[in-house]
Structures are given as C-alpha cells and as structure tokens.
C-alpha cells in the first residue's frame, strides 16, 4: 500500500518536472526573442507567446488538481545537511543558480510560508478587518466606488474633448500657413520684416541706453563725447534751474546738437 503511494508520488513529481521544464523552455525562448528581436517582433507573435505560457500554466494547474496526484503539501522536506562548500552536482542541477546549499539560502528556497513578520502583519490586518462593523465597511466601499467613478469620468471626458478636436483637424481646418512659415524663417535668418530699425537708425534719434547698436561707438570719439556731455547736462540744470526757471529747453538742446555732431562725425570715418 505504502509502496504504491510512493510510486504515485514519484510519477506525479516526474510529470510535474517535465511540465515545468516545458514552461521554462518557452519562457526562455520568449525572453530571448524579447531581447534580441524586439525591433521586428510583431504584437500578434507576442500574444502567441503569452497564449502558450498561459496554456502551459493551465496544464500544470490541472495536473495539481488531478485526483491521482497526491497532495504535495502533505510532504515535508527537511534539510539534512547544510554546507558552506560548493556543491558541483547541485550547481549542475540548478544550472549554476544555486552553487552552495548553505544556511544562507536554505530558508529562502525551502520556505512554504511567509516570513513570521509578514504573517504577523497579515494577522493584524485580518483582526482589524474583522473588528470593523459592516456599516462602516459598506460606507467605505461606497466612498471608494464614488471616487473611482469620478476618476473614470474625468479620464473619459478629455478623451471626448480630444476626439472632437481631432475631428476638427480632420475637417481640414488648416493648422499652419506655409506663407507664415516662410515669413518667420526669413525674419529669423535675415531679419526680414523686423528691419524697422535700419531706417530709424540712420535718421532718427538714438536712445541713450542703446548706444550698443547705433553707429556712434564705431569711432573712438563718439562715446567719449557723449560721456562728457551726459553728466554735464544735469549739472547745468542744477546750476541754472533756480536762476533761470523759464528756460528749460536750453539744457536739452545742448546734448542734442552734440549728438548730431557725433552722427555727422560717425558717418565720416566709416566709409574710409
């Protein structure tokens, strides 16, 4: 009787091992495909791979639920020998994944239950859930549902907005104007259409702060002349202000006449 059970266990474990090996092989080939052929992989072939994997997982599940399969959970595995040394046989069996059967890795590999701390946490959560009254729980469920529907609405509405927007585009409403493109490019490259500066620069007045672009700084005399006159003008104003209040135009005239001097001077040496 016991012998028969043992034999049954062995055959079912063998069957399980072959199924898992199949699953592993198809996982491997899928990963290789993803890593090496990701650029020409088509979506249908990815879906095929997923379908294969899910079919294989299903067969494993069926195998485990089969009446003939003994309950594996009733079997106990006890580590008999732990060793710090490298075990070549084990390394070969696990494809170099587990080279040593030591105290460090055994708790992870032979674990059948969560960590004690995790178990403790789970227990706490369970008691908390049990303590809560059905009314409170119902209320919280309703609140969560409300939040979810709101969020869904918000996510769906912009889509409608966008679709109407796209529809507008599809109605051949122009979104750009080639003439404008040319005008903008010409403006950036040659300053076409921006050049209201040039006619002004030659005839109009140059603001004091804008000596940088004007023709004045070209010659060494220009800036120095201006530098002399600019501080001079306010001084005059201060000196003259109280004495001759009815002649405010005079201090303003002085620098302007000097400015025209600069201009005529600046025109002069430049062509040479």
């Amino acid at each position: 009787m016991q012998q028969r059970e043992e034999k049954q266990l062995e055959t079912s474990i063998d069957a399980l091992i072959t199924r898992v090996a199949h699953l592993k092989a198809s996982l491997q080939s899928f990963i290789i495909k993803l890593e090496t052929e990701y650029d020409r992989l088509t979506w249908p072939s990815v879906l095929d791979n997923f379908a294969l994997l899910s079919g294989q997982l299903n067969t494993i599940n069926k195998l485990l639920r089969n009446e003939k399969t003994p309950a594996f959970r009733n079997q106990v595995i006890i580590p008999l020998l732990l060793s710090q040394d490298r075990d070549e046989e084990l390394a070969k069996l696990t494809e170099q994944r587990v080279p040593v059967f030591s105290h460090e890795i055994v708790p992870d590999y032979l674990r059948t239950k969560p960590d004690p701390e995790v178990e403790e946490q789970e227990k706490q959560l369970n008691t908390e859930a049990a303590r809560m009254g059905t009314d409170v729980a119902q209320k919280q469920i309703q609140a969560l549902n409300k939040l979810c529907t709101n969020l869904l609405e918000k996510l769906n509405n912009p889509r409608e907005d966008r679709e109407s927007e796209n529809a507008a585009i599809r109605q051949n409403k122009p979104t750009f104007n080639p003439a404008d493109t040319n005008a903008l490019v010409a403006a950036v490259v040659f300053g076409k259409g921006l050049s209201n500066r040039r006619p002004q620069g030659s005839g109009g007045s140059v603001p004091p702060g804008q000596t940088v672009g004007g023709a004045g700084p070209m010659l060494s005399g220009g800036p120095t002349l201006q530098q002399v006159t600019m501080p001079g003008a306010p001084n005059q104003q201060v000196a003259m202000g109280p004495q001759v209040p009815n002649q405010p135009g005079q201090p303003g005239k002085m620098p302007s006449s000097i400015k025209t001097n600069i201009k005529s001077a600046s025109m002069h040496p430049y062509p040479r």
Binding site: F176, T181, L184, V185, L194, N196, R197, G201, P207, G213
Partner: peptide, 18 residues
Amino acid sequence: LLLPGNTESTENLSLSNL
C-alpha cells in the same frame, strides 16, 4: 520691437508660431 532696444513695447510679427 517698436522702438529699437526697447523690449517692453513689441508687436506680433504674424499670427503663427515658428
């Protein structure tokens, strides 16, 4: 720029964006 050097007063170049 409406006034040379004055970046405060400006005017649209066109109704498009580059």
